[in-house]
Design a protein around this nucleic acid. Sequence first.
DNA 1: GTCTATATCGGGATAGAC
DNA 2: GTCTATCCCGATATAGAC
Lengths: 219, 219
Amino acid sequence: MSSPRTRPDSRTRILAAAAHEFAAHGFDGANMDRLARAARLNKAMIYYHFRGKAALYAEVFREFIRGVLDRLHAVEESDADPSDKIRAFVLAIAAEARLRPHFPPMWLREVAGGGRHADQATLGLIAQIPATLGRIVDAGVGRGEFRPAHPLLLHFGIIGPLILYFVTEPVRVRLDRVSGLPPIPPDDVLEQIVHATLATLDPAPRALEARPSRQGRRS
Amino acid sequence: MSSPRTRPDSRTRILAAAAHEFAAHGFDGANMDRLARAARLNKAMIYYHFRGKAALYAEVFREFIRGVLDRLHAVEESDADPSDKIRAFVLAIAAEARLRPHFPPMWLREVAGGGRHADQATLGLIAQIPATLGRIVDAGVGRGEFRPAHPLLLHFGIIGPLILYFVTEPVRVRLDRVSGLPPIPPDDVLEQIVHATLATLDPAPRALEARPSRQGRRS
DNA sequence: GTCTATATCGGGATAGAC
DNA sequence: GTCTATCCCGATATAGAC
């Protein structure tokens, strides 16, 4: 995990190459030979540093989650308004995704697989992300600035579009050519997500027009 | 593709089992032996009906996309208001996801992989989904009911949360236990997504509070 | 159309020299 | 710590009988 002396190399290179490989091909599709080549090392070195493919994957994934959580906790502990914290929450995840471009694809695949490759401890870390959002919302509700919302569902409204935006960045060229759509203005992405999230939390929604004709009620 | 008489048989069973297998394990993780057992057939039968794993995958995937597109085109051609069409758009995708629970995971993995397993024709089909949304938005803009928004980004705001909701259904039990969160009220999901989408399209946004600069108190 | 049996190969993991 | 060479299982795909 960490020796006192500077050990810049093989282990770090393996982790970097692993992030790339897992992001591009998923757990099952990842190839240890290719990974070793990318790290400019021999395959045996991987097994010298890590117990196996699964352990390497878990390590990479936990590193990502920790990076996100560090930022989010900083957001939570700031003294901004609740709505500014929501904004900062979105920006923090986006910043981390930009910093570690391999995170969005890995995260997507992990979700699609039902968390199969994540041990219980890692799942616990992941759960802290919506939990943090939930505390921010609660604070806003306490001040009367937000109406209550389910943290996980709200979180889906944030990372869903965000991750899709990042993860489709490479494909969009292909898609755009087929669909004839213009590229997405980068600045719009975060604005829209923040705006939509705050609209969901708005205690006085103006969404009468959102209701078709008759509407069931929940509190 | 279709014989006139009822052929409820091997080919159909293979497709059903394939949807399950690909959804649960992804393309690389899918196992033809396990797939054959699930279809109560021998593995050789798969290769009798399909050219290989890739062809089988493509067939399943295209079937899903067609199902979605059929619903969406019906929505587009209805004579509802633009905002009701937006609502119907969301409901249509949700209905299809309920009907074919294997679609959300497959779709997620495909996106994460950058559309690697989809041929150009299938990509063209996929592109029709946001394109349809775009035409609905354009109609609303023409009536002054919507403000312009990028169709693909808007689409991300819809399917992102939606797919995450469906795809995490199995995991949420595990996650909830760790996080201590209550389950998501199912009725809230579609309401929130529709509401957020319409808020994004609102031509007179009340989102001054969404701006980073210091905001004044609201009335 | 449906089966059993098998060819073939890619890739995760290890042995052991240096 | 780093390498080369290799084991060996699992998985796709096929041959060929019925």
